[in-house]
């Protein structure tokens, strides 16, 4: 997770935050910092007492595994009533590069791709 490692051959860079579309209460962005049980409890609450028919779980990069885990755990806790429909996408991230050849040169920026997963957890219509 170290942000500014001076790896040989690659300039130093600063990451900009990932783009995040405006979200509704049913969009859950999974990260690696928050306690997993808390995230699970939040989703359960939304689907149970919150009365939502579906939640969308988003995970980016390192958090993909956690997102999948979260969705599966959700399904386990409501046996037989929840369906999953995952989809994947690519998210473009931006890094600010350090200027090469002196501080006053033009600092670059580059785009970098990262994979993301979006899992729709929903109750089937028939119920």
């Amino acid at each position: 997770m170290a942000e500014q490692k001076s790896l040989p051959g690659r300039g130093l860079h600063t990451r900009r935050p990932a783009p995040r579309p405006p979200r509704s209460p049913s969009d859950i962005y999974v990260n690696t910092k928050t306690d997993f049980r808390a995230q699970l409890a939040r989703c359960r609450q939304l689907l149970g007492a919150g009365g939502l028919r579906e939640v969308r779980v988003h995970g980016l990069g390192l958090a993909i595994g956690r997102a999948i885990n979260l969705a599966l755990q959700l399904q386990l806790s409501h046996p037989g009533t929840l369906l999953l429909s995952p989809s994947t996408s690519t998210v473009e991230l931006t890094d600010d590069l350090e200027p090469e050849g002196g501080e006053d040169m033009e600092p670059g920026a580059r785009n970098r791709n990262n994979s993301a997963i979006h899992i729709r957890v929903y109750r089937p219509q028939g119920e």
Binding site: P99, G102, E103, D104, M105, E106, P107
Partner: peptide, 11 residues
């Protein structure tokens, strides 16, 4: 310039 970009920074 040791402290970072100065007044002359290109951008």
């Amino acid at each position: 310039t040791e402290t970072g970009p100065s007044f002359a920074a290109a951008l």
